[in-house]
Each structure stands twice: as structure tokens, then as C-alpha cells.
Write a protein that binds this DNA or RNA. Structure first.
Lengths: 248, 248
DNA sequence: GGTAAGTGGAGGTCTTCTCTCCATTTCTGC
DNA sequence: GCAGAAATGGAGAGAAGACCTCCACTTACC
């Protein structure tokens, strides 16, 4: 991951160990959890292997292209028949749940971390950057959190817990005079939406480009500034044209 | 349309008449143009009426929900059978072309206008605001310009003409020290994409919300600032939740 | 090596889209 | 008014694609 070198680009200063640990955990897939977590009749070796293959493939394909990828395609990506997918996960929803249920909780972790920063602005930037990293990169997770229908229960519960925490984070940074005073917690999903859209649009050809606009937006969020934070490289004309000239 | 009262919110100062005239023209539908513009065998009265009904309905429905609305739905919205739509327009592409071909050209008009401003920053803001108004509000037009497949030829041609003009507009504002110097013309479609995503997400429940983030982004684009431009009202928690709890 | 568990993928069912066809209705010139 | 050309609407053909089931065959385990 590229690290642009601007004024709000070192969010983990003073908390790097906590942050790093969490980041690592996000990548893991919980291979223990079954479709119905209560039942645990011990899988045969090949079955366990295939279950993991499906989870890995689904994680990749959902992250890249969102939750409306068909299970046939997940099966193909896993090198497995559709039947196998359905034998292991009763439903598409069950698969999504197995993949994302715990990851969604990470947002709470980020919020808690952010409140522990001494500098309120750094805490705010930490939360924004973590939340964006999580949701912008992973389109499936973003779908689950923002357009739930699958995660519904879990996502709504998490939002209910996180929103007041985000309000606190924002108000601390505002009280410190670093953050513009008209930002509210409800803006965060909109920022995710905006940067997610760039990521969806240019993702395949330039996966880091969205961060250019994250920096731009942070320069809009700061209460005042004498100059600007340098942006990462812009897209080339060719790449933009290529992204545009492709199916809806 | 709500007019937030910030520092970069009066783009048409000193050019209001030109701007207003153009804006009015955008709303019109050219009822003369036929599917194949060369042929003009004079339509029967009812046919002409229905043709216009289809165009009007299609304009509305494409603007609201993008180009992947089915022609059955356009027909229903027009109060007409699908057969009638296909009798008048050989193809979905033909309908889209008839609707948008000339509107796309408006981007060129905006660019020309913007270059005529005495104050380079005001010219830049004028262009950005016009271009966003045009494309964010009208999802169909945005689809045609950004994800062409339909408008392909026309959109590509327009982009080729406009890009150098936008570069000039941007460089003038940068030379005047008002615009951050790392912005390039290729960023404009990304800004459209970002705000378009907010509009798609919250559009039905809060059609003007995207402008809140337009102001935020402009505060990120300005070279430096002592304070911030006030944002329009944030979405309520309930409205955001409602937008989230709805199908993908 | 017997058997229960697991597998793959053809295909059933459903939905949704584009576009055609034609019996019926509506305009228009005389 | 009326004849005939023009136009209409909507059922439905055809294609695509999604979800999920079924079952003849294969594989792992004791």
C-alpha cells in the first residue's frame, strides 16, 4: 500500500502496535465457524478443504466485485461444483454471513482505538482512514454494511453501537479546533460511498487511486489550512478513457 | 434548487445571462430529430404525440434511474405499448442517442463559458458546478458520458474536445494561486463519480444532499483557507438508515 | 474394502430483458 | 363519411442469468 506523505497521513503514530495487530486479524478467515455455528459434526478432510477453498474464493470475488456475484461464479473461482457450495452453506446469505459477520465488528474496534488517541484530530483521522480502508477496498463488505439486506441484523446492530462513538470522535476533534464544526457522524457513510465509487470505477486499472481523493477530502475536512496535502499520482488520460469505455 | 451561502457559491456572477440561457436550453427536447435524422416522412398526429411522450418519459426515467431501465418500463411510464416505442426507435441505443446526443455537447458550452470569466477561480468553480449539476442530477446522462457503450462515439469525441479546455481552466486558476496545484483535468470525472454515487444512494430521499459534499470537496480544492464554507443540512439518521436498508 | 460422506454439474424454475408480430384501432385525404 | 394507410398495444418468443436441487459417481475413513 502506497503511503502518501502529507500532513494527515500518519494516523497510527503513537498507536501503531494496536493498529497493526487489528489490521492483520482482518485478513484472516475463521475456518472454524460453520453455517449453523451450533452444529459441529466434524467434517471429512476433503470437505474441510473444500469449505476453506470456497471461503477463500468467495472472499476474493466478493471483495473485488461485490455481493451480487453469483454462487456459480464463486464455485468456479473455488474450483468446485455449485453443489459443493450449497452443501456447505445453505444459502448465499449464509456464506456472506460466515465471511463478514466478524469483520463488521472491526468498525467498533477502530472507533474504540480512535478514542484512545491523545490528539483528537489524529484519532479522527485514524478512524476515517481505517473505516475507509476496510470498506472501500472490500466491495462486498461495503455492500454488506451500506446496502444490507444480507447483513441486515448484524450491520444495523453495529451501526447503532458505532454511531455514538463516531459522534464522540468527531466532537472531540471539533472541540480541539482541528475539524470543521459542521461534520456529523451521518457523513461517514457518504464518504465511504464516494470513495467506494471511485474504487469501483477505477479499481481494476488503478486500485490505489481512491486514496488520492481521500487526501483531497481530508483537506476539505480540516478546519483551516495554509497549504494543501500533496495528492498521490493522478490517473493517466488513457486509463480513465479505458475505464469509461467499458460496459455499464 | 437550494443555494448554500458559502464562499464559492455564486459562480455565475458577471455571466448570469449566458449561463441562464444555456441552462434553459438543456431542459428542452428536440422533437424534430428522428431516429435516422435523414428520413423525414412526416408523422401522423398521434404518432408524433406518442413519440414525444416516449421521449419525455424516457428523459425522466433515465435521469432518475440510469440507462439500465428496461424499455418496457419506459413504455409504461409513457403510457404507451412497448411496440410503439420500438416502432419509433429501432433500438434502445437509438432512443438514448436521441435523448442525450445534444445534451452532451453542453459540457463544451460550460467550458467555453468558464474560460470567459475574468476571475480564473470563479471560472473554475463555474465549470465544476455546471458540469456536476448536469451529470449528477441526471443519472442517465452520467451513464452515457462516463460508462458509454451507448454514446460511445459522441461521448469520446466530446471528451477529446473538452479535456484540453478543462486543463486550461484549471491551470488559469492555479496560476492565480487560488486552486491547489496538483489537480488535473482527469480528476473531474472522478469528482462526478463521487458525487453521483451520493446522489444515487440518497437521491430518492434527499435529492439535494450531494451538494453538501460538493461544497466539502471545493473546500478541499481551494489552495488555502482560513475557515470553511458552511455545508447544507446533513442527512438525518433515519433517512440514512432507510437508504441503507433497501435492496442493492 | 464396505459404507457413509462428499462431489460436480446438468438442469428445473424463476425472473428479467430485448425485440417481433399482428388483430385491432385511429387518423387523414378525398 | 369512408377507404385505406398508419399506428397501436401487449402477448409472447428467445436469450440470458440467477438460485438451488438432485443423483450417479467418487473419495475418505475405520
Amino acid at each position: 500500500m502506497k503511503k502518501p506523505s502529507g500532513t494527515h497521513t500518519n494516523p497510527s503514530a503513537g498507536l501503531s502496535d494496536v493498529a497493526e495487530t487489528e489490521t492483520a486479524a482482518i485478513g484472516l478467515i475463521d475456518i472454524q465457524s460453520t453455517d449453523t455455528p451450533s452444529a459441529g459434526p466434524k467434517l471429512r478432510a476433503d470437505a474441510a478443504r473444500n469449505r476453506e477453498r470456497v471461503l477463500t474464493a468467495a472472499a476474493k470475488v466478493f471483495a473485488d466485485r461485490g455481493l451480487d456475484v453469483s454462487l456459480d461464479e464463486v464455485a468456479r473461482a473455488a474450483g468446485v461444483g455449485v453443489g459443493t457450495v450449497y452443501r456447505r452453506f445453505s444459502d448465499k446469505e449464509a456464506l456472506v454471513k460466515a465471511l463478514f459477520e466478524d469483520k463488521i465488528e472491526n468498525v467498533v474496534v477502530f472507533a474504540r482505538e480512535s478514542m484512545m488517541f491523545e490528539d483528537p484530530w489524529e484519532g479522527f483521522v485514524h478512524f476515517i482512514e481505517r473505516a475507509l480502508d476496510l470498506q472501500v477496498q472490500n466491495r462486498g463488505l461495503r455492500d454488506a454494511l451500506l446496502h444490507s439486506e444480507f447483513g441486515r441484523a448484524g450491520a444495523a446492530r453495529t451501526r447503532a453501537v458505532v454511531t455514538p462513538m463516531v459522534t464522540t470522535i468527531i466532537e472531540r476533534a471539533q472541540a480541539a479546533g482541528r475539524l470543521r464544526s459542521d461534520l456529523v457522524a451521518e457523513d461517514v457513510p457518504m464518504l465511504v460511498t464516494m470513495l467506494g465509487a471511485v474504487s469501483d470505477f477505477m479499481g481494476p486499472s488503478d486500485p490505489e487511486l481512491w486514496q488520492r481523493y481521500r487526501v483531497l477530502i481530508l483537506d476539505g475536512l480540516v478546519a483551516q489550512r495554509a497549504g494543501w496535502t500533496p495528492l498521490s499520482n493522478p490517473p493517466s488520460r488513457e486509463v480513465v478513457d479505458a475505464a469509461m469505455t467499458k460496459p455499464l
